[in-house]
Amino acid sequence: MEPILNVKNLTMNFGGLKALDNVNIAVEKGQIAALIGPNGAGKTTFFNCITGIYEPSEGHVEITPPGKPTQRLNGLKTNIVAEKGLARTFQNIRLFEGMTVLENVMIGRHCRLKSGIISAMLRPSAQKDEEQKAVSDSYRILEKIGLDKYVNEMAVNLPYGAQRRLEIARALATDPFLLLLDEPAAGMNPQETKELDELIIWLRDNEDLSILLIEHDMKLVMSLSDNIHVVDYGRKIAEGTPREVKSNSDVIKAYLGDDSEDA
């Protein structure tokens, strides 16, 4: 079967700087894959290339949504990529702070709704039904994530861990088949990290989702991931199961430095 995300020979140049150099990464359906690497290795750039924030200089980004043919994502606009079923969160929280928790999730629902301004004027009842459905869908998502008690709170007033979960809830509202999480555990305490671990596994098992995450918390990465991709200086240096990656000499070198150079 085709991988649901297939990135081939991805290269991203910023002027003379090669932030990504010939990276190949494939994510299989139902997998939790992790992308790790030292700071500045190009992990977030990779996410930005996939989601349409950057247009890759070279290479192919292809997706195969479940039950649909393979499509190319290169050069598509961000909102189109979201409509195709890729959702992401950010390493620094980017909620719509001036809105309530429910509104934040409903905004995510936006791209799945049909009626526009014209139909709202001509057929207010259809618009109303759709809006009602958006509210109930959003509420259900919040229940799943365990945020339903905060429904009418302003997003900015939520505790940190809850804000992180709300980002995931908003991403889920766009009905994705692949969830891209950029450092979801950053700044979380051990209890919150444990809950996040459970949430991510629950999402994969119950929501028919595949997940690609960037993370620095190695304990979390090792316990969660089916497959780990390691990048360093924009190049992919290793791939494999947690056990394989842990014992890979290139990976150890990238993280701990190379002894032979100093000797």
């Binding site: 989601t51 924030i53 980017r94 905004i107 791209c111 799945r112």
Partner: peptide, 11 residues
């Protein structure tokens, strides 16, 4: 509030 984030959720 945030153009990039808005487009990422499909707006």
């Amino acid at each position: 509030q945030d153009q990039i984030m808005a487009s990422l959720v499909g707006i």
